[in-house]
Design a protein around this nucleic acid. Structure first.
Lengths: 193, 193
DNA sequence: GTCTATAAAGCGATAGAC
DNA sequence: GTCTATCGCTTTATAGAC
């Protein structure tokens, strides 16, 4: 029996894709309505705060996904080296091998950043901290780990921009493969088995 | 005597800042009018094609600036190593040490990319090719030069995203300093004096 | 919970006076 | 070349029927 109650969990991914593809300003209620399959009235029933609330909840869900699938394994995984490799794989899949951009990055570059400064900052910081933690647990010094982690953030975001700019998703996949190699090479020299 | 003819050269930089700060969709004619100091009527006198023409001409002017100040020195400079160092310095200044984002990157991530796919693609490709050319002239192999150049593009764009996301321009300056060191280290090992 | 209808404001773009 | 006034449309958001 089909349930009449629409779940937030079913709506948010559809809204997320609109924000990703069109940016905050470009994501109109008409597009959000079409993508979610809900009329504007229904959208306002779920999100009385309108577009801003929709974007905020989308960002929160993204953060939650990364927390579970990427940050926690990096922070708590038994094998940090394996967690790093898994992070690369998860990012490859999440960003659809460079064919999907990062909403947090899109928001960060736009005028809407001011309205979402906290979640945007937290996302990048938490990811970098989690990766640095894993690198430390592999034997790198705190300073080196932090530097390598920040570097990895740059590469991932930059690869998404360039892949879109050159219309060549392979740029992203190649950058992720290189990044993996570089991070693991660091470990090999820091803590040779 | 003040000239009554408004020069395109005076308008375009003002329009550019609006597109940079708000993205293509977020750059409204009201904002463009305010920033340029011209009424909407005047803007349409200069740009009959409206917003799309304004953005196209802004992108063309940006491309022209990079061609003169960055690409040509990399391609034709007598000392390629110095040209690379100069490129880093010019980028630092152009992006105001990370406080200004790259319009081409912003457009690349948004829905407007399809309308400006060619200039966006050309900008990144030409920059990467020019840098690769300089690296080759320093003694690196074609394959290594291309790889290092593409990597540099990622780092620059990524650093702009992360600097904005973390609201910390120093991330950009640090990334540029590291990039410079890495590129020059490559040269030292490839062509020791 | 979902919809249509509609309000009020803002949008890109045009016309025409000066 | 610049402006104001305005058009037609889209926008966000609300009201109210079902």
């Amino acid at each position: 029996m089909a349930k009449t109650i629409t779940e937030r969990a079913d709506i948010l991914p559809a809204l997320a894709e609109v924000f990703r593809a069109h940016g905050y300003e470009g994501a109109t209620l008409a597009l959000l309505s079409e993508a979610s399959g809900l009329g504007k009235g229904s959208l306002y029933h779920f999100f009385p705060g309108g577009k801003e609330q929709m974007c905020a909840e989308v960002l929160a869900e993204i953060d939650s996904w990364f927390e579970t699938n990427i940050f926690q394994p990096l922070l708590k995984g038994e094998d940090p080296e394996e967690a790093i490799a898994a992070m690369i794989g998860a990012a490859e899949r999440y960003f659809k091998s460079g064919r999907r951009v990062c909403l947090v990055g899109v928001v960060a570059l736009g005028a809407a950043r001011d309205a979402f400064a906290e979640p945007v900052r937290a996302y990048f910081k938490r990811w970098a901290d989690a990766l640095a933690s894993a690198l430390r647990r592999c034997g790198l010094s705190a300073a080196t780990a932090r530097r390598r982690a920040e570097d990895a953030m740059l590469v991932i975001q930059g690869a998404l921009v360039i892949a879109r700019g050159l219309d060549d998703p392979k740029v992203f996949s190649r950058a992720m493969a290189d990044l993996k190699g570089r991070l693991l090479a660091d470990l090999a020299s820091a803590a040779p088995a």
